[in-house]
Write a protein that binds this DNA or RNA. Structure first.
Lengths: 261, 261
DNA sequence: GCTTATGGTTCATTATTTGAACCTTAGCTT
DNA sequence: AAGCTAAGGTTCAAATAATGAACCATAAGC
C-alpha cells in the first residue's frame, strides 16, 4: 500500500473514533509502527488535517477538511440538493428517511429526517451501512459493475441479527432481485424489528454515488406499504440525481452517451 | 518533502482552483511529474478526497473531506460557536465583519457577515489573507511565537497597493504596535480605499487560531471609529475563544497552566 | 523513589517513489 | 480521411524516501 493510502487510512481511523486518541493507540489501530504513525501525524498536522491538543497530546481531525468541504459543497452541493427531497419523502411516508453517500470504500449516512411518529426508527448521521445487511448497501451494490459485486461478495459478511443474510450466493440473489425491482428491501438485516427499502442515486453514466432509504418498524408495515416506499425512494433518488447532475447534460455531444466508468 | 506532504499540497492546489482541472494542469501547478501527479490522484480518489469526472476526465475535491468536516464540526463546532458573535459585531458596527482561520500554513476567510449598508466591503469566503497586508494577517502573526514571526519576515512580501508595507523591519514595527494595542490596523494594505482592524482568537495557551476582522471604506471611517472597531474586535475574539474552549478549563490541573505550545 | 506507560527520536536497512520515455485516444486541420 | 497535436495514461530502472527496532524523556501510579 502506498504511503499516501496509509496516511489517509490513519485519518479515516481517527475520524471513526468517538474521541481524541493518543499516539500509541493510533499506531495500534492502524497497525503502524509508533515512529511511522508519528511521522504521518506530524505531516497531516502541518497541512491542518489533524490537530494535537497542547495539553493532552491527543490527536483529533483538524480544520483543513472543513475548508475543503466548504469548497466542495459550494461547487457541488450534494446535501443542499438532496435534503429537500429527503424531507418531502419523510413527510409523505411518515417514516424515517436517510441519505447515504459512498466515500472511501464505504457507504455512510450523511443525512437523516426523522419520522414524525412517536414510534420511529433512529438512524445516526455518520453510521456505516454494511453492503449485505442494509437496504442502502444492497441498493448501492446491486447497481455497481459486476467486477465490484464479485469483489464485495468475497469478503466475509457479519451476522447482525438472526435474519441477516450472510451467504454470498443468497446475497447475490438479493442483489439480482434489487436490480429487477429498482429498489432493495432489507428485512431485519441490521436490526431486529426494522424493515427498510432503498434506491440508488446514480451518476448520468449509471454508477451509484449513494442511496435514499426509508426505515420503518416491521410491526406496522405491510407488503403493499413496502412496495410503495420503494417506488417513492426510486422517485426521490432519480429526482436528486437529475437536479444534481442537471436534467440534460450541458454541452452534450456524442461523448456523453459513451459509458466511461 | 514527504510524499504525504506533496499529496496534501496537491489537494490544496486543487482546492484553490476555481474550477475542475485536468491531469497535465495539476502536474504543472504542483511542479510534479505527470506520472506522479496521476498516482497521487488515484490514491486520493480511492479514499474519496478527489473525484474524477467520468466525461471530462477532470478532477475535483471529493466527498471524504465533507465527511471529516462533519465529524470535526460535530465535536469541535468552531463556526457554530463563532458565527453569532460575528453577526452581532456586523450589526453593531454596521460594517463587514469576517472570520478567518489558520489552516495549512495559511490564514483563510471562513465566514463573512456583510455590512447592511449599500456602500460596503465585499470579502469572499475562502480568500487567503497575506500576513503583511491584511489586518487579520498582522493580528495573527503579532501573537505568534517570535521564531515564527522571524520565519514569516524572511519571505518576500508582495506589494498589493501603493500603501502595502513590504519592508520586513516596518512590518515588524506594525506587529509590535499590534501587540501593544491588542488589535491590528491595515490601512489599504490589500486593497485601496479599505481600512480594516482585526483581533486574534487564541487558544487558552495563547496561540492564535484565527481572527475577527472589521473592514470598512476608508472614506467614512474616522480614527476614533477605527479604535472603537478594534476594541470591539478584541471583545468578540475573546468571547469566541472563551465559548469555544470553555471559560474555565474542565478537569483543571497544574498541567493546564503550563504553556505547552 | 522505583516502576510502568506513553510520547517522542534516531539511523542503518528496505521498500517505495520517481520521471523520462513510451503508448493511446480524442479532437483539430488540411 | 489521413495526418497532426495535445492530453490522459503507463512502464520500469534509478533515486529517494519510508521504515522500525532500539533508544531517550517525562509523567503518572504504586
Amino acid at each position: 500500500m502506498s504511503t499516501i493510502g496509509k496516511a489517509l487510512a490513519l485519518l479515516d481511523t481517527l475520524s471513526r473514533l468517538d474521541k481524541e486518541a493518543g499516539l500509541t493507540d493510533i499506531a495500534r489501530l492502524c497497525t503502524l509502527d509508533k515512529a511511522t504513525a508519528r511521522r504521518f501525524l506530524v505531516e497531516l498536522e502541518k497541512h491542518g488535517f489533524v490537530e494535537q491538543d497542547a495539553d493532552t497530546r491527543r490527536y483529533r481531525i483538524g480544520s483543513a477538511p472543513v475548508r475543503l468541504a466548504r469548497i466542495r459543497e459550494a461547487r457541488f452541493p450534494f446535501l443542499r440538493v438532496a435534503i429537500p427531497f429527503i424531507k418531502a419523502l419523510a413527510e409523505s411516508s411518515t417514516e424515517t428517511v436517510h441519505l447515504s453517500e459512498f466515500s472511501g470504500e464505504q457507504l455512510s449516512t450523511i443525512h437523516v429526517e426523522d419520522s414524525p411518529r412517536a414510534h420511529r426508527i433512529i438512524v445516526d448521521v455518520g453510521s456505516l451501512l454494511p453492503f449485505h445487511a442494509t437496504a442502502s448497501g444492497l441498493a448501492f451494490l446491486a447497481f455497481c459493475p459486476a467486477a465490484e459485486i464479485d469483489k464485495a461478495l468475497k469478503k466475509p459478511f457479519e451476522k447482525f441479527t438472526e435474519h441477516t443474510v450472510v451467504d454470498p450466493q443468497l446475497v447475490r440473489g438479493l442483489l439480482d432481485e434489487t436490480r429487477g425491482r429498482g429498489f432493495s428491501i432489507s428485512h431485519q438485516g441490521l436490526e431486529a424489528g426494522v424493515i427498510s427499502t432503498a434506491a440508488p442515486i446514480r451518476t448520468p453514466s449509471g454508477r451509484p454515488i449513494g442511496c435514499v432509504a426509508i426505515a420503518a418498524p416491521l410491526s406496522r408495515t405491510t407488503k403493499t406499504a413496502i412496495h410503495e416506499f420503494g417506488v417513492q425512494a426510486i422517485a426521490a433518488a432519480n429526482a436528486i440525481s437529475e437536479k444534481y447532475y442537471g436534467s440534460e447534460r450541458p454541452m452534450g455531444t456524442i461523448a456523453n452517451i459513451r459509458r466511461t466508468d
